[in-house]
């Protein structure tokens, strides 16, 4: 029995060294050489300062920016240090209350727009850090953004289309628009 315990402990330590030290170090080394930008967080810089990651959603509240999906992180939305969904069940009244609040906020910022709100702007994302919105959600906000910035609606639509990614390999996932990249492109137009 003591021989068996010794075999167990030594093999455990050896396999720990292989899978817990060699493997992650090798993976990190190769990843940093092959895909350095991706391995380090797909970081985005603005005027030389770190402005975030193209993969991590940010909060936008000004009418001149496209707004991200609702986020249930705390203490504030889009807090990457504490990723979280709302975990509200479908029959929980808190869910419909939150939805109503978001609809009101969207409609207040965009008076005159009576279209039904795309569900992704009303439902909290799973991670609380969703960097993207659906093309329908982007289209819903185009007139508001154009008005706030004094831009042509057609120009804003063109920017949205330029930043719309289709399904990967034509079939995987969903079409989506990266909100941070779109908003940075808007800022870059100078309006």
């Amino acid at each position: 029995m003591s021989r068996l315990i010794r075999q167990a402990v030594v093999l455990f330590l050896l396999l720990t060294a292989v899978t817990g030290v060699l493997y992650p170090l090798a993976a990190t080394g190769v990843a940093q050489v092959l895909f350095p930008a991706a391995a380090n967080g797909s970081l985005v810089k603005k005027d030389g300062v770190l402005a975030g990651s193209s993969l991590i959603g940010q909060s936008f509240t000004q009418p001149g920016y496209f707004w991200s999906r609702p986020s249930a992180t705390s203490p504030g939305p889009n807090n990457p240090a504490a990723s979280s969904g709302s975990n509200l069940g479908p029959t929980n009244p808190a869910l419909t209350d939150a939805a109503k609040q978001r609809i009101d906020a969207l409609r207040k910022a965009d008076p005159g727009n009576d279209a039904p709100v795309p569900v992704e702007l009303v439902a909290a994302s799973g991670s609380g850090l969703d960097p993207e919105i659906s093309p329908a959600a982007a289209r819903y906000q185009v007139k508001r953004v154009a008005r706030a910035r004094g831009m042509d609606v057609a120009k804003v639509e063109a920017l949205v289309d330029a930043h719309t990614k289709g399904r990967q390999l034509g079939v995987l996932g969903e079409p989506r628009v990266n909100v941070l990249e779109l908003n940075m492109a808007l800022d870059a137009t100078g309006r």
Binding site: G85, S86, D114, A123, S134, A137, G173
Partner: peptide, 23 residues
């Protein structure tokens, strides 16, 4: 509510609470 949860070419629709746009 005034919500559009229809599946279309522009959105997945359905129950998007707790889900990510890309999925």
């Amino acid at each position: 509510l005034a919500v559009d949860a229809q599946a279309s070419a522009l959105q997945a629709g359905g129950n998007m609470e707790g889900k990510e746009t890309r999925f």
